[in-house]
Amino acid sequence: MQTKTTQQHLGASARITQEVTSWPGVTAGHGSRGEWAFKVGRREIGHLHGDHAAHFGFPKDVFDTYFAQGRITFHPVFPDRRGPGARRIEDDADVADVIAILRDQYERAVSRS
């Protein structure tokens, strides 16, 4: 287990990847558009663009909940479309919430298996 000091030296993407890939069945790798994608089987649960942005695909009701809570915004490629969501990553709280959102996505994906 890494210490907090060691984790502070890791970028947001590395910290998120370290946690999310520790969950059973999760893989991570580069996608076709340069994103760093997390998958459970063939289902993508979200992806990162460097250390500054996370993107997700949600059912509309889940999107609405996260959006109302201020946890996500519209995806920049799909403005005003419910479902695709985006989250800026600027600090440790954002890293923690991206991990929490990915965990929710993971739970939905494995419950369908």
Rank of each mutant, 00 (worst) to 15 (best):
Q105T: 06
G85V: 04
A93F: 08
A68I: 06
A109C: 04
K39I: 05
I99F: 02
D92K: 14
F63R: 01
A37W: 03
A100S: 15
Q2R: 15
T6D: 09
A28M: 06
D80Y: 09
R82W: 02
S22Q: 11
H9S: 12
T73L: 04
I16K: 13
E19V: 15
V110C: 05
D94L: 09
Y106Q: 13
A68Y: 07
V98T: 09
A68C: 09
I101G: 00
Q2S: 11
H55F: 14
F56S: 01
R103W: 09
H75I: 01
W23A: 00
D94S: 12
H55V: 09
Q8Y: 11
R87L: 04
G11F: 10
G46L: 06
D94Q: 08
P79T: 06
E90W: 04
R42Q: 11
G50M: 15
Q2D: 07
T21P: 04
H55Q: 11
S22L: 06
H9M: 09
D91R: 14
P24K: 14
E44P: 00
I99V: 15
K60F: 00
Q8A: 10
Q18L: 12
R108H: 10
A53P: 01
A93E: 14
D97Q: 15
K4S: 06
Q7P: 00
W36I: 03
R87T: 00
Y106K: 08
E107I: 14
T3L: 10
A53C: 03
S22V: 05
A37V: 04
R81Y: 03
R43D: 05
I101H: 03
G85I: 02
R71E: 02
V20K: 09
I45P: 08
S111L: 05
P24Y: 11
A100Y: 02
H30E: 08
Q105I: 06
D64I: 03
F78N: 08
R81W: 02
W23S: 00
F38P: 04
G34T: 04
G29H: 13
K60V: 06
T3F: 02
H47A: 05
T3I: 02
A109P: 03
R43T: 01
H75K: 01
V110W: 01
R81N: 01
H9F: 10
D80G: 11
H52G: 12
Q105Y: 06
Q105A: 15
F58G: 00
I45R: 10
S111K: 15
A37N: 04
H30A: 12
R81P: 00
R87F: 03
I45M: 11
P84H: 11
G57W: 12
S32V: 04
G29L: 05
F74C: 03
P84K: 15
V95E: 11
Q7E: 10
A68S: 10
Q69W: 02
V98I: 05
M1D: 02
D80E: 12
V40D: 00
V40G: 01
A12M: 06
F58I: 00
Q105S: 13
T6S: 07
A68V: 07
Q7R: 15
F38A: 01
A12Y: 01
G46R: 10
T3Q: 04
G70P: 03
V40L: 09
R103D: 13
Q105M: 14
V20R: 10
R108F: 14
G25W: 03
E90T: 14
